[in-house]
Computed example of a mutant assay.
Amino acid sequence: MELNEVRQQIQTTDQQLLQLLAKRRQLALAVAEAKISQNKPIRDQEREEALLLRLIESGKALELDAPYVTRLFHVIIEDSVLQQQAKLQGELRGMQGPSVKVAYLGGQGSYSYWATQKYFTRRAEQIIDIGCDSFNDIIKAVETGHADYAVLPIENTSSGSINEVYDLLQHTRLSIVGELTHPIDHCVLGVPGTALNQIRQICAHPQVIAQCSQFLLGLTNIKVEYCDSSSDAFQRVQQKQDPTMVAIGGEAGGKIYGLEVLARDLANQKDNVSRFIVVARKAVTVAKAIPAKTTFIMFTGQQPGALVDALTVLKRHGISMAKLESRPIPGNPWEEMFYVDVLANTHDYAMTRALEELNRITKFIKVLGCYPSEAIQPTEVPTS
């Protein structure tokens, strides 16, 4: 066959694959409806393992190797689980309508913008995005009713926790109602025709600078300009049209502003992932069929063993802790507030008892939110 003919057949096959994937997603949502009516959990990992093993065997007959089939269906299964969870939560709280207003950091093209799109496309027909210049502005947008939700980055695998967001959570009445993780691939982006050896100025958000510090150490005679967001950095480079000035951010975001990639994979860690939280004015109830996560803050006091006593409560009730973060308390030198993420639902008996006990032995405790966990661990199958 001629090359063009082969490409046309590939194009046709790709379109058929998309149609089949769309059909599979609709069937997964039908499964969710059946699970809701029968009060069954969303995930059945024994069934997922059997499914993967069957698909691997079928793939072998079609000359498709096991790692390829496994990676492909891990993505498909993850999408099915998240779609089903979103549907179940929507049924539980009642769908809000065709559109939601969401506040996030920066403008179109920022990492928070893409995280917002990723999270809410499963939950609303239309997203009215409200770009903000600071985390404080984001919180205020929801508190005042200007936005229904806010999406906030909370931690990154390379640069760690985002302390400003943790500190804001101490003082707001908003509740955490969701979470998501989003891969972060930092690139150097400049106006068309820019060369790496021409660079004299880099525009980027402080968190991006921290995540790419090793790459930046290898550069000389470079001025770093801190920006409010990645989209802000893109806009500055676009407006200047200066081949000595570049931005660091995501490739998809840079393309919105007409920028070209000069270098990729800049992060200090190969797997650079950010975790975002979703906050709203009203807390949500998480369906029992969905894995839940609860975040709370507590002040244990400075007496010896106070923190150990608090954590022992969680252990005694069989509650797994996912994160422990300490932050200073303004106005109280050398005293700290602890942020705790646990893998539990506040409506579970064990979690209810644990919170009651923590209330008695700590000086202060506040639940910031109970929400569906979107950390979907892939089902492993025997390598043989």
Rank of each mutant, 00 (worst) to 15 (best):
L17Q: 14
E57G: 15
E336F: 09
P192V: 01
Q214T: 13
T12C: 13
S58A: 05
T121D: 05
A252I: 00
L88K: 11
S99K: 12
A344C: 12
S229T: 08
S229I: 10
A344K: 09
R236I: 09
L368S: 06
E48W: 08
E57T: 15
Q38H: 01
Q89E: 06
I128M: 06
N272R: 00
S80L: 06
A28N: 05
Q235F: 02
Y68K: 13
E91I: 09
G131S: 15
Q214R: 14
V246H: 09
N332V: 14
A233L: 03
Y149P: 03
L152Q: 00
H317T: 02
P98M: 08
G318L: 10
G253Q: 00
S134G: 13
R71K: 11
H347M: 05
V367F: 08
A22F: 11
I128D: 04
T116K: 12
R7F: 09
T121K: 06
R275W: 02
G131K: 15
V165G: 05
Q302F: 02
E46F: 02
F338C: 01
Y149F: 14
G193E: 12
L259P: 06
G97K: 03
H186E: 14
Y349I: 02
S58P: 02
C203N: 09
I176T: 04
I376L: 10
S373Y: 00
V246T: 08
Q9F: 03
K87A: 00
A141P: 06
A306E: 13
L169D: 05
Y371I: 00
T294K: 05
I36N: 01
N332W: 11
A247S: 15
N136D: 14
Q214P: 07
T70D: 08
D271I: 03
K35V: 07
M245F: 13
W334I: 03
L105A: 08
A28M: 04
I10D: 00
V31Q: 15
L18G: 14
A289R: 09
K87N: 00
R236F: 03
S37Y: 08
F296M: 06
Q238A: 13
A350L: 05
G94L: 14
Q201L: 14
E143G: 09
T13I: 04
S231P: 03
A247C: 12
L62Y: 15
F234H: 02
P192Q: 01
I162T: 04
R122L: 06
K118P: 01
Q16L: 12
I365P: 07
D265V: 00
A233F: 04
H171V: 12
R47E: 04
P206S: 05
I154P: 12
T12I: 13
R281A: 08
H74V: 02
Q377S: 09
I154M: 12
Q26V: 08
A210D: 15
C132G: 05
D265Q: 04
L29Q: 13
E380V: 08
R25I: 02
I365C: 01
N39F: 07
L311N: 04
Q26G: 07
S320W: 05
C370H: 06
A289K: 10
E125D: 02
V278I: 11
G178C: 07
L314Q: 14
G59Y: 11
K101Y: 05
N39C: 09
V237G: 15
S159I: 03
I127Q: 13
V102P: 04
E57I: 15
P67A: 14
P98V: 10
P153H: 03
V284I: 13
P330Q: 02
V246R: 11
Q211K: 02
V6N: 05
V208H: 11
R173W: 10
I365A: 04
R25E: 06
